[in-house]
Design a protein around this nucleic acid. Sequence first.
DNA 1: GAGAGAGTAAAACATCTGTTTCAATCGATC
DNA 2: GATCGATTGAAACAGATGTTTTACTCTCTC
Lengths: 241, 241
Amino acid sequence: MFYSLPCVTMPPDPPALPGNDKEAEADARERLLAAAQDAFAEHGFKGATVRDICRTAGANIASVNYYFGDKEKLYIEAVKRAHVCAGRMDTFPVPPAGTPPVEKLRGFIREMVTRMNTPASPAAMKLMLREMADPGKAAHVVVTEFIQPAAFALRAMLRELLPQLDEQHLLMTGFCIIGQCLYYRQNRPISELIFGKEAIDALDSNAVADHVVRFSLAALGHAVPIGDATSGRKTSARGKK
Amino acid sequence: MFYSLPCVTMPPDPPALPGNDKEAEADARERLLAAAQDAFAEHGFKGATVRDICRTAGANIASVNYYFGDKEKLYIEAVKRAHVCAGRMDTFPVPPAGTPPVEKLRGFIREMVTRMNTPASPAAMKLMLREMADPGKAAHVVVTEFIQPAAFALRAMLRELLPQLDEQHLLMTGFCIIGQCLYYRQNRPISELIFGKEAIDALDSNAVADHVVRFSLAALGHAVPIGDATSGRKTSARGKK
DNA sequence: GAGAGAGTAAAACATCTGTTTCAATCGATC
DNA sequence: GATCGATTGAAACAGATGTTTTACTCTCTC
């Protein structure tokens, strides 16, 4: 199992904060960022108010101007911080050389689903998803540092796995996989409304990861299809191709 | 091909509007709803302003109070209207009796992807997706009338197709399929940022539908896996089970 | 200890936003 | 034509919100 996280797994300390060797009280700037992250995640950019953020952070109204300039710059910084807290996607563990393509893909999907469903910081993940659903000024950061590396890694794996597939179908295949990974978190509230909160809560994160892996690999012909004998864990099941 | 739409395919006239036999000018209430739909779709509930909506609708500020009471009630009505414009999911065409389960599923997925990617009213779809991503007071309507029927229909098909699967895996399988259907529209802006607008625009809606169908059916063992011989269109390819 | 500079506190500002008020207008009915 | 109800128009209101200003308090340096 090569995908043990080598990077941050807990909400990390403020990354490389100058002069932050204090004991208990965090920097005001850092408190503002943390409060902003929560508030923006919960209410969006428009919905969150700087007054509320400052109150939560125990700082004065003027401090957001002092440290960040204005609300929007604070927002962008909060998103940047969130993408670190949520676990940067470009820090995906690299499988050891010689790992079979199918195994690489399996590890990737598992990692993706796991990170989505049990993020180190739920608020950070929520904020990132919000920015993804409605890209604004901060989307560039999220895409460049968080998503694009993962997307390109996935595409490389698929190309290795399906060398005969044209670009467009390769792209769509990646979307099919990512779509599944994103669904559970992106649409969890709605799923709960449809099927009831209990039914959704009952879904174990590991079981979801396993299922998405099997579904995707089966679609690619590298696992036993869903619904077949329960031992559907073998890698290259059918001797086709 | 049984899934030709029997219901609305164009932005329908205001449904059952009392005394609307006029020629050109629409009811002020209807103009407000239309403008609100666009504004809320574009900027969200907080971001859209009643002043802007009224200006677009050519109505007075007081009219939103007069016709709807307040901004939130206008929002709810706009969402209700949107879910009609976007094509109610409970109006899915029913396949003729005796249709094989696989064909039913194939038709369902195709219909779903098509409706998502080429909606009658893009703004309406955008507003619905917004409400789904961040469920508020209007989510209940969207879920009950738009999504739940489709979700239950899908689950019934899957149960018919995979009778030996337990409830949880049935649920997850449905999520895997819906996740793919939703991805392209829900994350189109981000996809464009990652791979470039041209690459995404180049994806034909029909090709996407075909691909999602094949990916899903292959995962269920009812189509040739992705990457196999290009003739992957047969229904029950492998002679297993 | 004086001075400088970083950080904080409280108030004020200007603008925007949802909502309300109240008079004016229009159209049909008696 | 007068009356009544529905609808519209313009202005005003009250509150919230992002931002700025100004004075104050530390802490560190000289």
